[in-house]
């Protein structure tokens, strides 16, 4: 007997049923993620806070991400300077390399690259850790021991990511600009003093703040996706692996989407 999703002719999926089921599943997922996010944010913003867990997560998420963020930033800054120089060369605008590098890094690339790198390093790690805890009944054990997983597990990660991402982005901004300076001075024959003066003169506080606000949002997205996918991980190594993959992909896409939305917003309000 065929179900509603197949037609009479040969078992091809009924596009209406398929679309309907997909739409329902999508809205269901959005609803579950929204409720999970709301509960996590509420637990993160209201006492009591688990400061020991928060500190542990600040180290895990923030401190241990420094090498990957620093290395990514220096290469992005260097590549950016080279490309702007090559492009600018076509219409005699090479002198704008420091200005465009600092603008691109602080407003856009520092935050985005940090967000994407942490979507890989942190989100997948959180999802795998919480997923493994779920399948080994550790989350059930937490509940039976009167510990709320939202307060004990998810809120510290959420807060730690939201607090440390701006610091990481600030560091990425500095290292990224240094990457551009290195290439410009040592490979493109820019004068070091002029490059630095142009960078400092062109940079405004707004450019830095834009990147830092983005970083807070990216931090929230990164932690939420890891916690959410981990918490609904199914049994076995496959389930945990799938949770890690889904969390990483979801976080990366949401970071890029949030980046566009926030950029639009900042342009609209004129900063």
């Amino acid at each position: 007997m065929s179900d509603a999703s197949t037609t009479k002719s040969g078992g091809f999926p009924n596009p209406l049923a398929w679309t309907g089921r997909g739409t329902l599943a999508l809205f269901g997922e959005i609803g579950r993620l929204s409720i999970f996010s709301g509960r996590t944010a509420l637990s993160a913003l209201t006492p009591p806070w688990n400061l020991a867990q928060l500190w542990k997560q600040i180290i895990a998420i923030g401190f241990y991400s420094l090498p990957v963020v620093g290395l990514s930033a220096v290469f992005i800054g260097a590549a950016l300077a080279l490309n702007i120089y090559t492009g600018g060369n076509r219409f005699g605008a090479e002198q704008f390399v420091p200005n465009i590098v600092v603008l691109g890094i602080t407003r856009e690339l520092g935050a985005t690259i940090t967000g994407l790198m942490l979507a890989g390093r942190v989100t997948a790690g959180i999802a795998a850790e919480i997923g493994a805890m779920k399948v080994t009944e550790q989350i059930d054990a937490l509940k039976t021991l009167s510990a709320n997983p939202f307060r004990y597990l998810y809120a510290p990660r959420f807060l730690a990511a939201a607090l440390t991402l701006p610091l990481l982005v600030l560091i990425a901004d500095i290292i990224g600009v240094m990457g551009g300076w290195l290439v410009s001075v040592y490979a493109l024959d820019f004068d070091s003093t002029t490059y630095i003066r142009n960078t400092v003169d062109f940079l405004t506080l707004d450019d830095v703040v834009v990147g830092l606000i983005k970083a807070v949002i990216f931090g929230m997205v990164i932690a939420l996706m890891g916690c959410y996918q981990g918490s609904k991980s199914s049994a076995g190594a496959t389930g945990v692996g799938r949770a890690a993959t889904l969390s990483m992909v979801g976080a990366a896409v949401l970071v890029l989407a949030a980046n566009y939305i926030l950029s639009t917003f900042f342009v609209q309000i004129g900063i």
């Binding site: 805890m133 080994t136 009944e137 550790q138 059930d140 054990a141 937490l142 039976t144």
Partner: peptide, 9 residues
């Protein structure tokens, strides 16, 4: 509660 797997953290 003693869980089947122990469920130690």
């Amino acid at each position: 509660m003693l869980f089947q797997s122990g469920a130690l953290f």
